[in-house]
Design a protein around this nucleic acid. Structure first.
Length: 207
DNA sequence: TGCCAGGCCCTCTTTAGGGCCTT
């Protein structure tokens, strides 16, 4: 089996739906190679309009910070270079995928070929007793040290990456968590909760 | 005019509704 390098990413945005006109205002991402974070990406993006007071308060990203930030036409090509053709992970990946697709669609000659896996869906199988599956709560549940501020893109992507590695460690039958193929995590996210153990027994040979 | 996200997942389900998660 090969070591699975993945890019864990997180968007801060003006709202919940690119279909309703919402835009990305920050991208954060880290690369995981052989169970270690080996590279980082963080850029603000000027969304072309003011963000709401709610978003300023929620993310700490203010209109004055975004005023001189580069537009997506400058940031997305750099982000495409960062993610290359690696597979991608995000917490509630359907959200980040919609914004990634929308911002790439605005930028000609950019895109990605990797597949997405979702740490939220995986965590609902692996940490079935967690009181909630919000990122911050899962980080505490898994005893992952955290000292930064959630709701910033790079910090959330780093915490998601550490959660991802903790989940790999939880299910890996061997010490080398890179033995857990990306596709197994993708499939695990769709397995009925009461079938998780038998799925892992079959695919990985037990906990 | 009035609406306004989308997908997963559970249940008092499947001819549906509502909570969870992301900003």
């Amino acid at each position: 089996m090969r070591a699975d390098t993945v890019v864990v990413l997180d968007f801060e945005t003006t709202g919940l739906s690119p279909d309703q006109g919402d835009r990305a205002i920050e991208i954060g991402a880290v690369r995981i190679e052989n169970g270690q974070i080996t590279d980082r990406f963080q850029e603000l993006i000027n969304p072309g309009r003011r963000v709401s007071e709610f978003i300023e308060s929620y993310t700490g990203i203010t209109n004055s910070m975004l005023k001189d930030a580069p537009p997506c036409s400058e940031v997305m090509p750099r982000f495409a270079e960062f993610i290359e053709d690696y597979n991608l992970v995000a917490h509630n990946a359907s959200f980040d995928k919609r914004f990634l697709d929308a911002e790439f669609n605005r930028t000609p000659s950019t895109g990605y070929t990797g597949q997405f896996a979702c740490s939220l869906l995986a965590s609902r199988r692996i940490y079935q007793t967690a009181s909630s599956h919000k990122l911050g709560n899962l980080v505490r549940h898994a005893n992952i040290p955290s000292e930064g501020e959630f709701h910033r893109a790079l910090y959330d992507s780093e915490m998601t990456a550490k959660l991802w590695m903790a989940m790999l460690e939880r299910i890996a039958p061997l010490e080398d968590t890179s033995q857990v193929p990306f596709v197994i995590m993708q499939r695990l996210s769709k397995v009925p909760k009461d079938k998780v153990q038998s799925f892992l027994d079959e695919k990985l040979g037990g906990w």
